[in-house]
Structure formats: structure tokens, C-alpha cells
Write a protein that binds this DNA or RNA. Structure first.
Length: 141
DNA sequence: GCCAACGTTGGC
DNA sequence: GCCAACGTTGGC
């Protein structure tokens, strides 16, 4: 079991929209490091859903339901999906009772090394098990 | 709206 | 291969 965090701007694709749809094709990733992380996801892995830009923070938990395949929104010269970029499919699991804001994450010593803080622009990143547990715990109250 | 961080592009 | 210019992301 691996743990991840994905970012989305709530004005573009927020948690609410995700829950309404019931399933998301996580497309549009155009960064190699983020792409490599998508490729490493396995069915059943747990994924923290983070809102960036507007009220930044972790708002919910999702799970991987389909592993990486070519991104249909990334066409190559032959107008076929490029194999360079990939998508995964995610389903919502639960909304956190209390969103864990970025400022709260920054204030927690055990979360001082999360990629979210170290690499602020990365949109798909791994989360250590202890970090994952801490964020879920903070989201309970 | 501003700005820092950082990835990409293109000239040389 | 280096580096300046530029575009994008994301926090504030």
C-alpha cells in the first residue's frame, strides 16, 4: 500500500465536483516527476486530495481504481494519445471532517518534510505512511 | 495582484 | 552544454 497526494485548484476541479462525478480521470499532468508518480500508483493506494491556491489544504481521501494508461488529452503527431503522458483513475473515499490547511501542515513538526512543503509546485507526490496517518488524524477535528 | 520558485524553450 | 527569457504554479 502506497500513499499519495494530488493537487487540484477547487475553482477548476474541486472535491465537491469529484464527489458528484464519483470517479475522476486524473488527466493533464505534464510534469515528468508527477508523471513518474502516477506510473507508480497501484489499485487500492490511498490518495489525499489537496486544494491549491484557494484555501489551500487537504480536504478528502481518495483511492486509485485504475492504474496508469496513456493520457487521451495528450495527442502526439499522429493524433493518437501520446504515450509520454499518463492518467490514473480515482474515486472518492471520504471527506475529511475538518480540512487540514497548509498552515496547519506547516505548523506540525512531524510534517516538516512533506513534499508539499519541500517542492511546492509538484502536483502528484508520494506521502510517507506516518505523514499520511498524521494528516488523517489532523483532519478528524 | 504580486512575486518567488521552478520548468521549458531557444539562441549561441 | 550554457544560460537568458519566458511561462506556469501556487502562496500570500
Amino acid at each position: 500500500m502506497n500513499y499519495w497526494l494530488v493537487k487540484s485548484e477547487p475553482d477548476k476541479y474541486g472535491w465537491h465536483h469529484f464527489v458528484e462525478q464519483g470517479r475522476a480521470i486524473w488527466d493533464g499532468v505534464r510534469n515528468y516527476q508527477a508523471r513518474n508518480n502516477l506510473n507508480a500508483m497501484r489499485v487500492g493506494d490511498q490518495v489525499l486530495f489537496y486544494h491549491s491556491v484557494t484555501n489551500p489544504g487537504v480536504v478528502g481521501l481518495a483511492k486509485v481504481v485504475k492504474e496508469a494508461y496513456p493520457d487521451p488529452t495528450a495527442a502526439n503527431e499522429l493524433n493518437a494519445p501520446s504515450t509520454r503522458w499518463v492518467v490514473v483513475e480515482l474515486e472518492p473515499v471520504l471527506a475529511l471532517p475538518a480540512p487540514v490547511t497548509l498552515s496547519r501542515i506547516k505548523a506540525e513538526p512531524l510534517l516538516a518534510n512533506v513534499a508539499l512543503i519541500k517542492q511546492s509546485r509538484l502536483s502528484v507526490m508520494p506521502i510517507r505512511p506516518d505523514e499520511f496517518e498524521m494528516i488523517l488524524k489532523l483532519g478528524q477535528d
